[in-house]
Simulated scan of single mutants.
Amino acid sequence: MDLTGNTILVTGGGSGIGRGLAEALHRAGNRVVIAGRRRGALQAVADANPGIEYRQLDLAEPDSITRLAAELISSTPGLNVLVNNAGVMHTEDLRTGATALAEIAEATVTVNLLGPMRLTAALLPTLLGQPRAAIVNVTSALAFVPKTSAPSYSATKAALHAYTQSLRHKLRGTRVQVIEIIPPRVETDMLTGQDPGPDTMPLDYFVAETMSLLRNDPDAAEIVVEAAKRVRYAARDGHYEAVFDLVNP
């Protein structure tokens, strides 16, 4: 993926990793559109970064996805990069068996998995028509070693990883590159109320290392910062059980 001269949509661009990536891509010389549910957060990013545009999007609502895709196809015909970043994470205790757990799981699957799949499907014809294009899916190291207090989140990220692999295979030979960004535990609003812990990576460091990896290897299929490697490659390196215990003390 070339890091300049693109027109990029970043979902969940109002905060956290989405905002960090959107701002870095904007500074690199791209036209960036951010999308999310909270107009105030989106406006704050746009105000702080003249030139970044924003649209409202609720990934839990298929109609919202359809409307955004149609509007972007009309207003930004040069759109050639989709960054599926938006997501939700909830703490769950699977021992309770409460009805609320099923509702949390359904909401998490809808936003974290079905949302990116629906948005990708809606924009794929446009991306395929560009001279060069990319789909960037932001998953998580927890796709590879789950956190038992966030089982639905971990499961959706594992599923998004599988979907990304399938999409990459199906789009081989086209002009659309498929990239998976696999963050470790990053210091964002998603951790509000939790102890960040010593293994949490500052957001600025994560964004800087991610951009560096993209720049140094524009053909990369996966972007794995150093702090995520132990978890991402736990099974391959033969220490899955030890890493599982570290993730779930």
Rank of each mutant, 00 (worst) to 15 (best):
M1L: 11
L3E: 14
N6M: 08
N6V: 04
N6L: 01
T7G: 11
V10F: 03
G13W: 10
G13H: 10
I17S: 10
I17H: 11
G18F: 02
G20F: 05
L25Y: 08
R27C: 03
G29W: 03
G29Y: 08
N30A: 09
V33Y: 12
G36F: 01
R38E: 06
Q43R: 09
V45C: 00
V45I: 07
D47E: 09
I52M: 02
Y54N: 01
Y54K: 05
A60H: 05
P62E: 00
I65C: 14
R67K: 13
L68S: 13
A70R: 11
A70P: 02
L72Y: 00
I73A: 14
I73Q: 14
S74W: 09
P77R: 01
L79Q: 13
N80D: 10
V83F: 03
A86F: 02
M89K: 09
M89Y: 14
D93H: 12
R95W: 07
T96C: 14
T96L: 09
G97M: 01
G97N: 05
A98T: 15
A100K: 07
E103K: 05
I104K: 14
I104N: 14
E106A: 15
A107R: 14
T110L: 09
T110N: 12
L114Y: 11
A121Q: 12
A121V: 07
P125D: 10
P125T: 03
L127N: 12
L128Q: 08
P131N: 08
R132Q: 15
N137Q: 06
T139H: 02
A141Y: 08
V145F: 01
V145M: 08
P146G: 02
S149M: 11
A150N: 11
Y153W: 10
Y153V: 07
A155Q: 00
A158C: 01
A158I: 07
H161V: 14
S166K: 03
S166H: 13
S166A: 15
R168K: 12
L171I: 05
R172G: 09
G173T: 07
R175H: 14
Q177L: 01
I179P: 05
P184Q: 00
R185T: 14
V186A: 04
T188Y: 00
D189A: 13
L191T: 08
L191S: 09
T192Y: 13
G193R: 02
D204C: 09
F206K: 05
A208P: 06
A208S: 10
M211Y: 09
M211G: 03
L213V: 01
P218M: 10
P218K: 07
D219H: 14
D219G: 04
A221V: 11
E222H: 13
E222G: 00
R230Q: 13
R232L: 08
R232H: 12
A234L: 01
R236K: 15
D237Y: 06
H239N: 09
Y240A: 10
A242W: 03
A242G: 15
V243P: 03
V243A: 10
F244D: 00
V247S: 02
N248Q: 07
